[in-house]
Design a protein around this nucleic acid. Structure first.
Length: 728
DNA sequence: ATCACAATACTTTTT
DNA sequence: GTATTGTGAT
């Protein structure tokens, strides 16, 4: 059968297993996505499954997209890509599956069909509100910590009644938990954890519902099984039912979401609860050179209590790993760019084949700045940045409020944005009036919009009342039209009637950027024109890693190690190999957490196909202050013969610091000469011709300000920008 | 009472 | 660099 031609014996065994529980333990780069896609195709072609009976679950939309592409190719028709409603394979993340199910079965929920999904910051806001309501100071009790504990409980399917409080902090958390859930309901909202929790609850409590979904999806597949949390595991078991056809693929060594409730022991649980399960090991690696695999093995082997895996490839040893130390994060970023430049220039790799990975998002800033300074394009993964922006959150809050007027968090966000004379005092009065009348604050506003007949006409001062009434009228108008008008028109009306552009676009560069972001979101909305507001809002809440940048752009990728899972690149940089960054400081005192940091490094290493470049910095800015940093303890575990560059972790810290300090001082005190002069004609590969406006020496590089034809002015690093002098 | 600006403290990873 | 809180001007 053609489907099986290119598979090795293990892969083939997995793909052709008779329906039933199957656990594929796959090493990195062993083709597990491929196995999943082939399995889906094989179910259809060999076991006679209907595409619509197959449900494949992933953790990210990106993985779902990739798999649908492969399945489509294999089945040679558009069957797989068809929307579920038209009989295609269901490829979905856990969270969107649950959101859709809950929306459909909303009669059984304490929220109505219009419910919104609260994101991180919304959750944070109601945690703070809950803390205040039970008279706790958000400064003394960290809202994040409380929320973390609540979230973990929910992921373990521990509801309020079962929440045990045997410490002071747990008792506080229990009280906040109670209030938090009430507030969610009042906002007609669910958080991420609720999506899973409620789905499991409904399926457990309603036999007919369970039967319906079991019949609907007789074949279930899961990717990244090691990342399932308890709620997700139970959900899988519920859906798989009495005669499970459950095909799980995972790698315990790549489990990096423990903090989010993921429990790689679900792998053991799977073996125990499905003793008949077929277990298949995929060890051959098709991605990396043996050097990279050996380094990866050396790192992961230090973790206790794991089943050793032998990673092998027939690709040969390849080149050594490179390790380098930079002075600070800017220098580190520059080293990245310089190396990419030289590798691309010598034709060893395409710019798009390079990726730079880091432990924390904050580390991307220096990189971005360096890329911008050099005038080079890059792709940044992690759209959180986009959806986390103030202006984007504002616009989404408006839309959410229109869709679900009970959304108090959204209301409070936009009530005085742009400023319209509704201050803290007025807001307080409004909330009081609302709670006295047992109405949502938005309902009070809508009532005010009715004019003199309003029961609230006398509650507010004249000025405040007028401002609130005006907002109420606007809201009323939008609600009235939101079902009839296309999404875009709704957005345009909101922007226009609120004067949002004048508010945000103040003529500065930043203001223009912000307005451009609004227009970008408007563009996304355009794609959701037909599916409507509900789907759009759900997309916005659940699709965080949708790349705002196109795949087709041939530019280096910047991403966190977490975001890197499931990807591969010919050339990988892992930056910030400093103790406290990777491994992260917050993991130091917890062996389980340290093991996870190690797995994270392992994931990063195994993304590389041909070349791995490790970087650290001698000096690092944290919270504004620059501090000396120690090399990562993980560096000691790398076999020195695989690495070019001085790992030098055997020196004492003081010795090393002294040497490095003098070395760097020397490097940066050597004056360099300016090569450019004001008025010079220059040429840039991307921006074309321009005139030098200013030039300045910055450490050991020259920063040139150039006005390009077409009116753009850029600050460029002379050593990187690739400028040619045309005319003096 | 509202708002703009300054001072403050804090910063893992994500659906 | 960002989010929240505090202060002074209007």
């Amino acid at each position: 059968m053609k489907l099986l031609e290119d598979l090795n014996p293990q892969q083939r065994e997995a793909v052709t297993s008779p329906p039933g529980p199957v656990l594929v333990l796959a090493g990195p780069g062993s083709g597990k996505t491929r196995v999943l896609a082939h399995r889906i195709a094989y179910l259809v072609e060999h076991f006679g499954a209907q595409p619509r009976e197959i449900m494949a679950m992933t953790f990210t939309n990106r993985a779902a997209r990739e798999m649908s592409g492969r399945v489509e190719q294999l089945l040679g028709s558009a069957d797989a890509l068809q929307p579920v409603s038209k009989g295609g394979v269901s490829l979905s993340t856990f969270h969107s599956l649950c959101a859709r199910l809950l929306r459909r079965e909303s009669d059984l929920l304490p929220v109505n069909r219009q419910f919104v999904i609260f994101d991180e910051s919304d959750q944070h806001a109601i945690i703070r509100q809950a803390l205040k309501e039970i008279n706790l100071d958000p400064k003394q009790v960290q809202p994040g910590k409380v929320h973390g504990l609540i979230s973990r409980a929910k992921n373990e399917l521990i509801e309020l009644e079962a929440f045990e409080a045997n410490t002071y902090f747990a008792e506080i958390t229990r009280r906040v938990y109670q209030r938090y859930q009430q507030l969610l309901l009042r906002n007609n909202a669910l958080d991420f954890d609720d999506l899973l929790l409620w789905t499991v609850r409904l399926l457990r409590e309603h036999d007919d519902l369970l039967a319906k979904y079991r019949r609907r999806y007789p074949h279930i597949l899961v990717d990244e099984f090691q990342d399932t949390n308890t709620a997700q595991y139970i959900l899988l078991r519920l859906l798989a039912g009495e005669e499970p056809d459950l095909f799980a693929v995972g790698d315990p060594d790549q489990s990096i979401y423990r903090w989010r409730g993921a429990d790689y022991r679900n792998v053991h649980r799977f073996k125990e609860e499905y003793p008949q399960a077929k277990i298949i090991l995929l060890e051959q690696n098709y991605r990396s050179t043996q050097t990279i695999l050996n380094a990866a093995t050396a790192i992961i082997d230090r973790n206790p209590g794991r089943q050793p895996k032998r990673l092998f490839t027939d690709r040969g040893a390849g080149v050594n790993i490179t390790f380098n130390e930079a002075y600070d994060e800017n220098d580190e970023a520059r080293l990245v760019i310089e190396t990419i430049a030289s590798l691309t220039y010598s034709g060893q790799v395409e710019p798009g084949g390079c990726a730079t990975m880091y432990r924390t998002n904050a580390q991307s800033r220096a990189l971005e700045e360096a890329f911008l300074k050099a005038g080079l394009p890059y792709r940044l993964v992690g759209a959180q940045r986009f959806y986390g922006r103030r202006e984007i959150k504002d616009l989404i809050a408006y839309l959410r409020l229109i869709h679900n007027p009970a959304d108090q968090v959204g209301l409070l966000r936009v009530l005085n944005t742009p400023p319209r004379g509704i201050g803290a005092k007025t807001v307080e009065t409004l909330l009081q009036a609302a709670s006295q009348a047992e109405l949502d604050p938005a309902e009070v506003l809508l009532d005010l919009a009715e004019g003199d007949r309003s029961q609230f006409a006398g509650v507010f001062t004249r000025r405040a009342g007028a401002a609130l009434t005006e907002f109420g009228r606007a809201l009323q108008g939008w609600i009235k039209i939101h079902d009839e008008l296309p999404l875009i028109s709704l957005i345009d009306r909101v922007l226009e009637e609120t004067g949002y552009r004048e508010y945000i676009d103040d003529g500065t560069e930043e203001g223009q950027d912000r307005w451009a972001n609004i227009m970008e979101l408007r563009g996304v909305a355009q794609e959701y024109q037909e599916m409507g507001l509900t789907t759009f809002l759900e997309h916005v809440a659940l699709v965080s890693d949708q790349d705002t940048l196109t795949d087709s752009q041939n530019a280096p990728t910047l991403l966190t190690l977490h975001a890197a899972k499931g990807l591969e690149f010919p050339v990988v940089f892992i930056i910030g190999l400093d103790d406290g960054v990777l491994p992260h400081q917050r993991s130091f005192d917890d062996p389980e957490a340290m093991a996870e940091e190690r797995r994270l490094f392992y994931v990063g290493i195994t993304r590389a196909k041909d070349r791995l470049i490790l970087l650290r910095t001698f000096r690092r800015r944290q919270a504004g202050v620059s501090k000396l940093s120690k090399p990562s303890r993980f560096l000691e575990d790398l076999p020195p013969d695989l690495v070019d560059g001085n790992l030098s972790t055997h020196q004492t810290y003081e010795q090393a610091s002294y040497q490095r300090q003098t070395r760097w001082d020397k490097k940066f005190t050597q004056p360099i000469e300016a090569r450019y002069q004001v008025g010079m004609q220059v040429h840039h590969p991307t921006f074309g011709e321009g005139v030098v406006l200013a030039t300045e020496i910055d450490l050991d590089d020259e920063v040139v300000t150039v006005a390009f034809e077409g009116g753009k002015t850029k600050h460029l690093a002379a050593s990187l920008a690739g400028l040619t002098i045309l005319d003096e």
